[in-house]
Amino acid sequence: MNRKQNIPFLTTRSLHPENQESPIHFLNEWLTSIKYFYRRNHFSYPLLSQRHFWIHIDGMVHKPRFFHYDEILSMPSKSIIVPLECAGNQRANFKPKVYGEQWEEGAISQGKWTGVPLRDILEKVGFSQNAQEIVFVGADSGKKPGVHENIPYTRSLPLEKAMHPDTLIAFQYNDKPINYKHGYPFRLIVPNWYAMASVKWLNTIKVIDYSYKGPFQTDDYVYYPYKDNDKDKFPVTTLNVNSIIQQPLHLSILNTGVHEINGMAWSGRGRIKELQVSFDKGKSWKNATVHQLSNQDYAWSRWSYIWKVEEKGEYTIYARAKDSSGQIQPHTPFWNRKGYGYNAVARITVKVE
């Protein structure tokens, strides 16, 4: 009898709305299979109809109009490999603890996104020279604490980011139509930013000449450095340089001998240039081998280190990444009361017997 191959599963954080964590420690491919892509929702999944196959563009544009799914698919497209990370990834690691979904390390996934550059579509409608931001509205909606009426999930981008050639209106993931639970038929893809910017089920785009103040822009996805006041708050945008140790798992029991320590690293500010590991709690560091996809500016890096251990006992292993902009993972994360952007040095403890 053939034994079925062991298959990892998503980890449930909530069911209503559905929030599921990727089994990131058991995934070694560059492209995350859609069945293992993490799920992050603020509301229930939307009920789609034929009207969701149209994207409406209006506001401060010269020619407001609708774009149909078939028309967008007929336009010149491009593909990029992009990791999408929830801004609350690793929230469970903050001390003191913060409220919110207690994501561990699996609220990140990476795949090949194919779509039309947003700027190509905006150029077809033209926009006012006074335009400042582009607003994106998804088909998902519901109640949000502190807001009386039902609201859709809505975010904006500054004009410069919206017009970047790699900001896409995507319609494919890993060469197949985007899965319903991840934004079918259209999803905005914003490389180098946390995934709250990559609006799912995109159906309305509006050009505005002011700063958008919706609740998912000025309440959520804001760094609040203090527990009891809003002083010095600022918006969540670019991915922090970060890494995780995938194997061995935290609190594993290992034999003496040779082991491979491996993981992944990423940044929204440049390519990963260095990954170091420490076995003395950061007093000294050793260089690991960094593996990268060629010609892919946004893709995460993989890393590995061969560890020969002959003495029994408990070991704490640290890992830290450095990117091409000079950013390096800190020992202590930037604490903020909503728990965004955790990127402290990765660390695990193992026992060797």
Results as ranks from 00 to 15, higher is better:
Y69I: 03
Y69K: 13
Y69Q: 01
Y69N: 07
Y69F: 08
D70H: 14
E71G: 06
E71D: 07
E71N: 06
E71V: 02
E71S: 10
I72R: 06
I72E: 01
L73V: 04
L73D: 13
L73G: 05
L73T: 09
L73F: 05
S74Y: 12
S74G: 12
S74L: 05
S74W: 09
M75G: 00
P76T: 07
P76Q: 00
P76G: 13
S77Q: 11
S77E: 07
K78S: 06
K78E: 05
K78F: 00
K78V: 11
S79L: 13
S79E: 13
S79G: 05
I80E: 01
I80F: 10
I81A: 08
I81E: 06
I81Q: 04
V82I: 15
V82S: 01
V82L: 03
V82A: 01
V82R: 01
V82E: 01
P83M: 02
L84H: 06
L84G: 03
L84R: 00
L84Y: 05
L84V: 02
L84S: 04
L84I: 15
E85K: 09
E85A: 08
E85P: 05
E85D: 04
E85S: 08
E85I: 12
C86H: 03
C86E: 03
C86D: 12
C86M: 02
C86I: 06
C86Y: 12
C86W: 10
A87R: 10
A87P: 08
A87C: 15
A87W: 07
G88F: 03
G88N: 04
G88D: 14
G88W: 07
N89D: 10
N89C: 15
Q90P: 04
Q90W: 04
Q90D: 03
R91T: 14
R91Y: 12
R91N: 09
A92V: 14
N93D: 15
N93A: 15
N93C: 11
F94C: 06
F94D: 11
F94L: 02
F94A: 14
K95F: 11
P96D: 15
K97Q: 13
K97T: 14
K97M: 13
K97I: 09
K97D: 13
K97G: 09
V98E: 07
V98I: 03
V98K: 06
V98H: 01
V98M: 08
V98W: 08
Y99M: 11
Y99G: 09
Y99S: 14
G100S: 15
G100I: 10
